[in-house]
Amino acid sequence: MGVDRDYRCQVIKPEDFNEFWGLVLDELSSIELNVKCEKDELRSDSKVTVYQIFYDSLDHVRISGWYSVPNTPVNGLPAILLVPGYQSDPPIPKDWSAKGYACLSVNPRGKVRSRSQFDPGYPGLLTHRIVDKNTYSYRGFYADAWRGIDFLLSRGEVDSERIGVAGSSQGGGLAITTSAMRKEIKAASAGAPYLCGFMDAIELTDTYPYQEINDYLRTYPDRLEKVEGTLAYFDGISFADQINCPIIMNLGLQDNVCPPETGYALFETIGSKDKKLFEYEGHGHEAGRYVHSGIMDQFFDKHLKG
């Protein structure tokens, strides 16, 4: 099936978008970070030290993460916030630290080790309280990821001027929202971005996780307007014009999870003048990872180590 590179999504950014998220950020900043950082001896090795970390986020939900640093003592480390996929377990980011970065792999609410206070499950997260932007699951979920930047800024070994964000799939969507909302981000990489063009994606795909929304609307068809209204506040496309940092994106043109059409629409909307799209024909949701990982390394080396 040919992909329409000029596809544009139907989402319209709400007029009070900035006000809505401004209030969320205000609320978030009023909550003490309350960091706990414990060395994980089992996962640490001769090259990398791994920590299990915790901090407080919106609604005082306790968020966990894996934090790793290279063992070679260096002041002013470049840092990466690694944001997770939808159903996968956030990885221990030893590979990033082996390349010289401090790296936080965050588990937003509902993910493993961050689910004692909030756990809508899988399937479930995508439609939990989807009729109300003020209680929708991703209001807190996004904030949990953004708060990872506060954690990195709290670390003495991290150079606050050299922080990037990376992720694929849901991580790609979170890389978009995080780089839009946190100006400390100096470089971003978003692969096969999820959470972008929701209402188009549910028509373009026949796969989970977007099917969760179709399941919901089949059950509650009268709630369509409310669902659309909520999702407009959470759509990566609504955030994208606020991205100013250098950013790369990669798409698989046979992506069966996050339709590439929504990726093109997203890329068009990104505000940064320093943006580049990598398209991988013959690739699915992995979006050309085996080639693109080298491109990502060069990109972050240039912007965070250069």
């Binding site: 377990d89 989970y208 996780p209 999870v257």
Partner: peptide, 15 residues
């Protein structure tokens, strides 16, 4: 070897 149980694997056609 992962925490999440899916109905069918992500990306599989629901059909």
């Amino acid at each position: 070897n992962a925490s999440v149980l899916e109905i069918i694997p992500q990306g599989t056609s629901n059909q």
